[in-house]
Amino acid sequence: MTVGIVVFPGSNCDRDVRWALEGCLHLSTRFLWHEERDLGGIDAVVLPGGFSYGDYLRCGAIARFAPVLEAVRDFAHGGGPVLGICNGFQVLTEMGLLPGALTRNQKLHFLCEPAPLEVRPGTCQWLKSYGEGEAINLPIAHGEGRYQCDADELQQLEGEGRVVLRYGQNPNGSVGDVAGLTNQAGNVLGLMPHPERACDPATGGTDGLRLLASVLA
């Protein structure tokens, strides 16, 4: 089992994700530089947090055209598990693997705090070890995490059970309290909270461990 961690210029959670996967879960990882195209031997892909390409134009807008993401798109369409955390979630929406967009937090502040969440795993592969309606706590750290889509789309996403993570106390103005979304097949998950920062009691809880460990099962 090898997890590929995509590294863009400006990624800054790539090493945190490696630490969580290798140090806490004893998985092997491989960094995938943004110019790579070969995902051979990779069983799951993580798009980590950070500021890919300096967030120029819009968060994730430039990253979307990185060569590695052509391979990630094929990998996702083939059913491969793909996880986008924070900036990774923004990239997934920009590349159209998940609907909607992430915009500036309602109150403009960069938010860095624990976020109580409700999990509705449905068919999402990354959340299969969580119970329906389970309450967990994961840290958030973002300035542009306000999920936005139109009312019809939100209703459809809700109806399809794709709003798999919801804020208990909406911190950023996201429509529908959306903190995380999955695709129709359930193999792609995008979320603003950082599961890799909640994998050891020393860093504030372990609620993120099962999410990352789900790729093992």
């Binding site: 915009t103 937090n105 403009l108 103005g173």
Partner: peptide, 13 residues
């Protein structure tokens, strides 16, 4: 420009 239905918090500030 942001669509009129989308909140512009920087504009509001």
């Amino acid at each position: 420009s942001l669509r009129s239905s989308v909140l512009d918090p920087a504009g509001e500030a």
